[in-house]
Design a protein around this nucleic acid. Structure first.
Length: 818
RNA sequence: GCGAGAGUGGCGGAAUGGCAGACGCGCUGGACUUAGGAUCCAGUGCCGCAAGGCGUGGGGGUUCAAGUCCCCCCUCUCGCACCA
């Protein structure tokens, strides 16, 4: 018990009781996770936050408070709850701030993390802080490096050269999915460009099929699953090759989803960046082609991706041989063909593809028609016919339905060495190198004799060296390249001189396995203790913003599948249940940000209203998963609610906490409220859970202490405890309990008592409500009819006409049709 | 352009096809009070004295009954954006 001479002052004063209980919970280790094999486990986790210097806003709490409620509720409901918190601490903002202000990330990051932690504590969130982790600590990133080496060992990490997305504000490369509308995901107003660089990739495409298929078995919001499906972008078709005329051994390889239209292929198109372009372009066309290529490279991605602009392209002078029609067809280049999808080349079937149709029309190319509609109607002349139908003008395919023709072409292609049926994915491999200082060093050494050599496990971690100056060297390499002591090393294989990799890992690497670390955060022999992971994982409820739909959630799923394949863990989906909290916009409807000056902090709200009132408002203001604008005036409503609870309970405690004689109605309402609140919390419907509590309070507050009685009083406090932990603790102790309310079992209801004895049956005449009858529950249709027909209002609306039909819904409604 | 979600009082929002607007904010009136930005009571979708009528973005439909299901349209938010 806290050292206080009395509990429950006359006035509710959150500033007095909240810090006192927070200190008491800390002193008694109330929220330490206890491994207890006798109880079912429940692992609830919020997405790994990046501790920014701006601190938490009331918007962030819209995620943390609901999760805290679920954790507290599950604990009371008998679960062994793991609810940890840690910091995704590597990243650009800290490094940029360091460059700008000369501060050091190793100083700012812990300071900012400590501030986040303080804010979470004053908000009453019950984390097990003994499990706090920090992805930028060597104890953690040692194992991030270990995972990278495991991926490397399994052939899933490789180096490749090519044009990479580059953000000049980040000063680093970006993966495909980190480019949003042609801009960087962290600098959404900064268009990205392309740079030719050699980089590390993770072969996530090897997992494309499983990442797609396993979405079916997990309980995630459908929109998120859809985004992942679209991102993976599986499409079935064929990869075929047509030889280039006059270039023996050279062929244009291409992917198509409509191999059945090969007889209608009248030209081919390569992406401007396609390697074949330089080889096959004829001297007479060279100048035009080089111009076009240079032009395409100069355009921003936004311009190039615009679907609105007219198609353009140039002829290379070269021809490919369509092996189906036995005709030579011109090879063009055009920027509507993307180097990053398929093979960067297409067969153009202008009769069946609208884009090819537009291109052929513009440049006067032939438009054969090789698909007729199945029902015999004539295909439109002014556009492509892209729906399935029946093959025509197509040699051995004539008369075959589109699906049959596809199979036939694939068989033919395979037999004649032209190609084969295949599956293509939109998703590209994950570019994981970053030319930055403040990240996890890639544990690789380059040796003149031995080439690319992984750092042996017993030499991990490759420590990030202390630096004074983080200015990038301007060579496209990371600032680490400026540290000779770091770069120069010896080859682990031959012992000769070697250089370290100076790039660091994308921050998403750190968040691809952190959920495992929480099971055994202090393990130093392995990334995690298998027994603890088997007990706690997978995460039972994962909660975070929808903005991570494709990046973080795809990477974390992939790493989990690799660990499963490596037999490190026994499950292959990390987050069987995912929920997205709604965004809280600022009062002005914009994103809360320091620069806009519209950030509302929990600190200010707690100062004004107390943490419990703030928490209740966070829960009550809108459905958990729906976006809303911050509106402070509502907090006074939840504060008033707490004050009314306070007044009522103080009166009850003052009367000596009588067991009392609650009326049937009070008992019934109590049981109903327990049922409602339990159900609503289970379904994350916190706003309606609180509405049910308010409704119940409106009844209880009218009663004298002995009319209310102990069971209604105590169960009210227990139901409120996860949502308003401080005030309920104060009241609980004032009711005479010595143990914490948060260790009490969750109240249960009697199903027999939640049923109503009297019900209101609505009487409708021709669909309109004309009367309401109070009858005992279960009253038969015959009796309700008799009562209804006696009703004055009903008689008036029947107007003497005989009823033709009755519809009766027991205990609800009688509908009379005349 | 394609895909997904949403549109209900002055505001946030409730409603397994069965009483639209629970609960709260705000507002109005009243009580208590030296005072009220405290507390308590009453009222609060629109029209109407009333009976009643009208109401869930707009238009159609299914049904005894539609905020909820179906079709068309409008607006907003999010995602993808020539994916062959």
């Amino acid at each position: 018990m806290p050292d206080r001479d009395h509990l429950m002052d006359e006035r509710y004063d959150p500033k007095k009781i909240e810090p006192a209980w927070q200190a008491e919970w800390d002193r008694t280790n109330l929220y330490l996770t206890r491994e207890d094999p006798g109880r079912p486990k429940f692992y609830i986790l919020e997405m790994f936050p990046y501790p920014s210097g701006a601190g938490l806003s009331v918007g962030h709490l819209h995620n943390y408070v609901p999760c805290d409620v679920v954790g507290r509720y599950k604990r009371m409901a008998g679960f062994n709850v793991l609810h940890p918190m840690g910091w995704d601490a590597f990243g650009l903002p800290a490094e940029n701030e360091a460059v700008l202000k000369g501060s050091h990330p190793t100083e700012t990051v812990p300071r900012y993390a400590a501030n986040f932690k303080r804010q979470l504590i004053i908000s009453g969130c019950a984390y097990d802080w003994s499990r706090e982790i920090n992805s930028s600590s060597p104890e953690y990133y040692k194992w991030t490096q270990w995972f990278f080496l495991m991926l490397h060992k399994r052939g899933l990490a490789y180096r490749a050269t090519g044009a990479q997305w580059w953000c000049d504000k980040c000063g680093t490369v970006l993966a495909n999915e980190q480019v949003i509308n042609g801009c960087c995901w962290r600098h959404t107003d900064n268009p990205v460009s392309k740079k030719d660089l050699e980089q590390w990739y993770i072969k996530i495409t090897d997992y494309a099929d499983r990442l797609l298929a396993d979405l079916d078995g997990i309980d995630w919001p459908e929109p998120i699953k859809l985004m992942q499906r679209n991102w993976i972008g599986r499409s079935e078709g064929a990869e075929l090759a047509f030889p280039v005329a006059g270039h023996t051994g050279k062929a244009v390889r291409f992917f198509t989803t409509r191999p059945d239209t090969v007889f209608g292929v009248s030209f081919m198109v390569l992406a401007p960046e396609h390697p074949l372009v330089a080889e096959i372009t004829t001297p007479s066309e060279r100048a035009k082609v080089e111009n076009y290529v240079a032009d395409a490279r100069r355009q921003t991605e936004i311009e190039r991706m615009s679907t609105a602009k007219e198609k353009s392209g140039v002829f290379t002078g070269a021809y490919a041989h369509n092996v189906f029609t036995d005709k030579d067809i011109p090879i063009w280049i055009a920027d509507y063909v993307l180097m990053g999808y398929g093979t960067g080349a297409i067969m153009a079937a202008p009769g069946e593809d609208q884009r090819d149709f537009e291109f052929a029309t513009k440049y006067g190319l032939e438009i054969p028609r090789v698909t007729a509609s199945a029902d015999g109607t004539a295909p439109p002349a002014d556009r492509a016919y892209s729906e399935p139908g029946v093959a025509i003008n197509s040699g051995f395919l004539n008369g075959k339905k589109t699906s049959e023709a596809i199979t036939a072409v694939c068989q033919y292609a395979e037999q004649h060495g032209i190609g084969r049926a295949t599956i293509n994915y939109r998703m590209r491999d994950w570019l994981i190198s970053r030319q930055r200082y403040w990240g996890c060093p890639i544990p690789i050494v380059y040796c003149k004799t031995d080439g690319i050599v992984p750092v042996p496990e017993d030499q991990l971690p490759v420590m990030l060296p202390p630096m004074k100056d983080y200015l990038p060297p301007g060579t496209g390499r990371s600032p680490l390249a400026n540290v000779p002591d770091f770069v120069n090393t010896t080859c682990p294989k031959c012992g000769g001189p070697a250089e370290r990799e100076t790039d660091t890992l994308d921050g998403f690497a750190c968040s691809s396995w952190y959920f495992l670390r929480f099971a055994s955060p202090h393990e130093d022999e392995r990334p995690f203790d298998r027994r603890s992971v088997d007990y706690w994982l997978p995460v039972d409820l994962y909660v975070g913003g929808a903005e991570h739909a494709v990046m973080h959630l795809l990477y974390a799923r992939m790493w989990t599948k690799v660990m499963f394949d490596e037999e490190l863990i026994g499950f292959d989906e990390p987050f069987p249940a995912l929920r997205n909290q709604g965004v809280v916009w600022a009062t002005d409807g914009q994103r809360m940000s320091k620069s806009k000056g519209n950030v509302v902090t929990p600190d200010a709200m707690i100062e004004k209203y107390g943490a419990d009132a703030l928490r209740l408002w966070e829960l009550f203001m809108s459905p958990f998963d729906e976006a809303t604008n911050w509106n402070e005036t509502g907090v006074s409503g939840t504060l008033r609610f707490i004050q009314r609870v306070w007044t009522m309970m103080r009166r009850y405690a003052g009367a000596g906490c009588p067991a009392g004689n609650p009326t049937d109605e009070t008992l019934k309402r109590t049981h109903k409220t327990i049922q409602l609140v339990t159900d609503h919390i289970e379904r994350l419907r916190f706003n309606t859970a609180i509405a049910a509590m308010m409704d119940h309070l409106n009844h209880l507050a009218k009663l004298k202490p002995e009319e209310m009685g102990r069971f209604p009083a105590e169960s009210f406090i227990l139901l409120l405890a996860p949502m308003a932990p401080h005030v309920t603790e104060e009241i609980w102790r004032a009711l005479g309990h010595t143990a914490s309310v948060h260790l009490e079992p969750w109240p249960t209801f009697d199903p027999n008592l939640v049923r109503d004895e009297m019900v209101t049956v609505v009487v409708q005449v021709n669909g309109k409500v004309r009367d309401r009858l109070e009858v005992p529950a279960g009253t038969s249709e015959v009796d309700v009819r008799a009562l209804a027909l006696k009703s004055g209002a009903v008689k008036r609306h029947l107007d003497g006409k005989p009823p033709t039909k009755f519809i009766f819904v027991k205990d609800k409604m009688l509908s009379i049709v005349v």
